[in-house]
């Protein structure tokens, strides 16, 4: 067991993937010499060279478009989008090309491209640096969409994403980059398949569904709820597309109360999909409607207000209270 920060765990995961497969490339803005603005690719260019760790021109559409070309040629590019808000110049390449090309080729083409996106708020940044754009991508068929929440998952999931023959949108909770956790880098026995959710805290009274940066928040909320005598289950979804429906539905059936928590706006957010699915399939098990906690239907506010915008322990517990009020 080694103790790694989430950022370092990603770094080690990519390093391992690059050692294992010479076709794995890293590309993005400032990923080389600087090691990325969050240092996630620190040292990789030094060890693998400029041909494999590529500081690209400043153009996100170019990054994804050329990654597609490299993938067509047999490479496995891992692209870094510097911040969530800057994935949009690449949206066309991701949505119209990356997501659809394999299907158009009747499977002849595989595009093992990973798009790493530091996501979410909570770091006091200026605008466009705190977005949660996952729903745009879960709404696009052809993309796997995952989010890691802790160092061990970061380490294993990035390698699984790179190994996947499908394009993977890989969300990294930027405010958790510096959080540390134990990672076993000597074996893969403990790895959870990339498309599986995980119950990170079993409970009986209500379920908190979350992913990425909100997993920690939900675990804290569950701890606080314990003092009120409520036993909350916390499910880290890990994969948003595909969704690990059995784990989600099983939890909902057992507890009968579900609160979905994400930083992205509630309105038309990923939580809406969860609520709909749970309602459709567990209607008679539910004690209350599925409730959602998330961002508001406003642009991400200036950082002095982000504590109001972002779900925190209190807002999660408030929703839990409401769930018990039915």
């Amino acid at each position: 067991m080694t103790v790694l920060s989430l950022s370092k765990a990603l770094n080690e995961g990519m390093r391992k993937a690059m050692e294992d497969d010479p076709k794995v490339l890293i590309m993005g803005e400032d990923v080389g010499k600087l090691g990325g603005v969050f240092r996630v690719t620190d040292g990789l260019q030094k060890d693998f060279g400029e041909d494999r760790v590529i500081d690209t021109p400043l153009a996100e559409s170019g990054i994804i478009g050329t990654a597609i070309g490299l993938a067509l040629r047999g490479y496995r590019p891992v692209c870094e989008i510097q911040f969530d808000g800057f994935v949009f110049p690449a949206a066309d390449q991701i949505i119209t090309q990356l997501a659809k090309m394999p299907m158009r080729s009747l499977g002849a083409i595989k595009l093992p491209v990973v798009v790493r996106i530091p996501c979410g708020g909570g770091i006091g940044a200026v605008e466009h640096h705190s977005e949660s754009p996952e729903a745009y991508f879960t709404h696009t068929a052809g993309l796997r969409v995952v989010a890691c929440a802790n160092p061990a998952d970061a380490y294993s999931m990035i390698q699984q994403a790179i190994q996947s023959d499908d394009p993977v949108i890989f969300f990294e909770p930027k405010r958790r980059y510096w959080e540390k956790g134990e990672v076993d880098t000597t074996s893969t026995d403990w790895w959870t398949p990339l498309d599986r959710a995980r119950v990170v805290r079993p409970g009986t009274d209500a379920t908190l569904l979350c992913y990425g940066p909100m997993v920690k928040t939900c675990l804290e909320a569950a701890k606080a709820a314990e003092e009120d005598g409520r036993d909350l289950e916390v499910v880290d979804l890990r994969s948003l597309n595909p969704l690990d429906t059995p784990v989600v539905l099983d939890s909902a059936r057992r507890t009968g109360r579900v609160v979905v928590v994400h930083e992205a706006p509630v309105n038309n957010g990923f939580g809406a999909e969860l609520a709909a699915r749970i309602t459709e399939q567990c209607f008679y098990h539910l004690e209350s409607p599925v409730l959602r906690v998330g961002g508001f239907s406003t642009p991400y506010p200036p950082s002095k207000l982000e504590e109001h915008y972002l779900p925190d322990l209190d807002r999660v517990l408030d929703a839990v209270d409401r769930a018990f009020g039915y």
Partner: peptide, 10 residues
């Protein structure tokens, strides 16, 4: 410079 990238990267 563009952050850490010198002109010849562009």
């Amino acid at each position: 410079w563009a952050i850490s990238e010198p002109l010849e990267k562009q």
